[in-house]
Amino acid sequence: MIDPPHYSIFIGQSEQIVIDNFKSFSTRGWSDGIDIMSSSEIRIRDVFMRNSDDCIAIYGSRWDFYGDTRNISVHDSILWADVAHPLMIGTHGDHERNGDVIESIVFANIYILNHHEPQENYWGALAINAGDRNKVCNVLYENIRVERIEQGQLIDVRVVYNKDYNPEPGTSIRDITFRDISYSGRANPSRIYGYDEERAVENVTFVNLRINGELMDAPRPELIDINHFAKNILFVTEKNTVV
Rank of each mutant, 00 (worst) to 15 (best):
I89Q: 00
G90P: 05
T91W: 06
G93P: 13
G93V: 10
N98C: 12
G99P: 14
G99M: 11
V101R: 14
E103N: 13
S104I: 10
S104Y: 12
V106P: 00
F107Q: 06
A108K: 15
I110V: 10
Y111T: 13
I112G: 13
L113A: 15
N114E: 15
W123N: 11
G124W: 01
A127C: 14
A127S: 15
N129F: 00
N129V: 07
N129S: 12
D132Y: 01
L140V: 09
L140T: 07
Y141Q: 02
E142G: 01
N143C: 09
V146Q: 08
V146P: 07
V146D: 09
E147H: 15
R148S: 15
Q151N: 12
L154C: 11
I155E: 01
R158P: 02
V160D: 02
Y165Q: 10
N166K: 11
P167V: 05
P169E: 09
T171F: 11
T171Y: 12
S172H: 07
S172V: 07
R174M: 03
I176M: 10
I176C: 10
F178N: 06
R179M: 11
D180G: 03
Y183E: 09
Y183T: 11
S184G: 14
R186K: 14
A187M: 15
N188V: 04
R191N: 03
R191P: 01
I192T: 03
G194F: 00
G194H: 00
Y195W: 14
D196A: 08
D196V: 08
E197C: 12
R199W: 07
A200K: 11
V201F: 04
N203L: 03
V204Y: 04
V204H: 04
V207W: 00
V207S: 00
L209Q: 01
R210L: 12
I211V: 15
